[in-house]
Design a protein around this nucleic acid. Structure first.
Lengths: 345, 345
DNA sequence: AGACTGCATGTTGACGTGAACATGCGAGCG
DNA sequence: CGCTCGCATGTTCACGTCAACATGCAGTCT
């Protein structure tokens, strides 16, 4: 029996050309191809050209799996998050993706469809199998606490907008600063006090905004009305706004996000209370649309892009040099538009 | 010279335990560990337990790079998109991520920060090095056409909301159907004709919506006013709305997305034209906030989740069985709220 | 009893890359 | 002139996994 005809059995996917193929084509060793592929300087210009030509001719593309196996680096950052359908998360993710791309990393999304115990734990389990060098977590704090999930040891982690800042480096918007800005703006206009439409009880940012609102009120000797708790949705803002509209004492409202502010605005219109003539409203986030609300919304701008950028920076610092950074706060800015004015005389 | 002390030089990152370590710990061969790791059935219950224990003890996690190298599969889907800061894109991405996770795939984001020639080409180049089994492209059509970018041959592709449906399978919302629904709704209420605030000239979905609006008008023998072109932003909707508000003939406006509709609404309020008593407005998208606009917006709901799910389905069908599917259209639904009414008598 | 089957488990090698370690050649220098 | 140094290039091997092919053992059938 002579050499059987070597039937190219490969029943699976056709693999692309490898370094060896390029090497053969260019008449060099595989190592030289590797050097060219990685842009090393110690290759003769002629040789380099020959290799590049061979690469183009064969349509060679480096196999990232082999590369990762060899180097232990995936050049990818995992991002664990719940729904993307939140203005802030999305903006943050966008910035993370861009910052990562600039640094030569790609983003692997690890969604947690439903924030139940099991799902969260599942996401973290799955994480073990993901090809990532580090992880950025954008998840409501209490879910991290309740699920005492164990992150794979040795995996660099940065946490955004959440507690757990004691365990991991954290990047966050300066919630308290923003809330103070909003509250003082209203107080400064002459309002006796400021009502607050808060986010969900267990949300990290909601809690911080609420506490800062309360502290600011106290610091100014203003009465502290009970906070009204919403769920971030414009719908909940609307429901709460309807209640608030009934009380003629209410002349200033600080809403924990723009979406709820939108609902409040609608409630005021429906109740025939003029904004800002009778009632002033301040939001939080400065989403794209806020300037087109009716009236255009005075709000606290968050720099999501900055948060994303800093997260990547902090994470990559740990990934690449092992240096774990401390936590960072990103400032906020008050954007005054037309939904606030002096209280009615 | 005796065996030098084998200094564990590894200067780079500490690697986690490998199959070999687990095998040693559990006193089995590496292959058996592999079998357990992949849930094969042909392993004795005792042995399996022993291996699992060893895995836990050592904190073993499979190396996906090695796995991918061996199998040629990354179990990851690349998503190429511009800014995430668009309501629709984000919702679609969310659905894609969830659908992919359900199928055991993760998502690798490949952002294209600025839609310039170079950037797009760059993203596609980078793609060559990405560890993905297939790609979903969510990019404005004209950018694909203008950049005659070459996708790596043999890489399965699905295109969302774009042309290029001739080259690749496409999944899209039935734009025309939605626009017809909106236009007919207004006509049905008794409006003489319907004005249109369109999206950017070269946007695929904007064009389809606009064409369908025009055709519907013609089909009903209604006069076709010139379309006014915005850029999707609420700000542009506001500017156009201000113009429209000046013309007392205008009683019905179909806006190509909800954000521009928000701007139109604000313009009407500022101009003292009542919605819907004097002017009716219909949007497109049904974003979360639309129900809380003032007045709540009648709009065309898009099922982004469905688009995402179908994209993944189509892509994975090609990835896993090589079967290339045709293009799909996802229906839309008209959501009637309070921004539309019969024209003033 | 002998051959054969089915199953758990082990051994070998290859996937594509790149670090570490050769090799080989010409220039520079005492 | 002989030695060394610098540089381009080549060779070898391991990264961790899993398919393919052994091996070995307990039943089962004729």
């Amino acid at each position: 029996m002579t050499t059987t005809n070597q039937t190219e059995a490969l029943p699976l996917r056709r693999r692309g050309p490898s370094m060896a193929d390029v090497a053969r084509e260019a008449n060099v060793s595989g190592q030289t191809v590797s050097r060219v592929s990685n842009g090393r300087s110690n290759v003769d210009a002629d040789t380099r050209e020959r290799v590049l030509t061979a690469m183009r001719k064969l349509g060679y593309r480096p196999n990232s799996a082999a590369r990762a196996l060899r180097s232990g680096r995936f050049h990818s950052i995992g991002v664990i998050m719940f729904t993307l359908s939140s203005f802030g998360n999305m903006r943050t993710l966008d910035a993370i993706a861009v910052a990562a791309a600039d640094a030569g990393y790609s983003i692997t999304l690890i969604p947690v469809p439903h924030p139940t115990q099991g799902e969260v734990a599942g996401a973290f389990d799955r994480l073990s199998e993901e090809a990532v060098d580090g992880v950025i977590i954008i998840v409501e704090a209490h879910l991290l606490d309740e699920n005492d999930v164990e992150l794979p040891a040795g995996l660099p982690v940065v946490v955004v907008d959440s507690t757990a800042g004691d365990r991991y480096p954290m990047v966050d918007t300066d919630q308290a600063h923003g809330a103070r800005l909003a509250t003082e703006h209203l107080l400064g206009l002459g309002h006796r006090t400021v009502w607050h439409v808060a986010g969900p009880e267990r949300s990290y940012s909601a809690t911080h905004r609420r506490e800062a609102w309360e502290q600011t009120l106290r610091a100014h000797g203003a009465e502290v009305p009970a906070a009204l708790v919403g769920d971030w949705s414009s719908e909940s803002g609307h429901a709460i706004g309807l209640e608030l509209a009934k009380d003629p004492e209410v002349t200033a409202i600080f809403t924990a996000n723009d979406q709820m502010a939108l609902g409040v605005l609608r409630a005021m219109h429906e109740s025939g209370r003029a904004v800002p003539a009778e009632v002033s409203v301040v939001g939080f986030d400065d989403m794209e649309e806020s300037r087109s609300f009716w009236p255009p919304l005075t709000t606290v701008r968050q720099f999501f892009g900055e948060v994303g950028r800093r997260s990547v920076e902090a994470l990559l610092s740990e990934v690449e040099s092992g240096e774990r950074e401390g936590s960072t706060l990103v400032a906020t800015e008050l954007i005054v538009r037309e939904s606030t004015a002096r209280p009615p005389a």
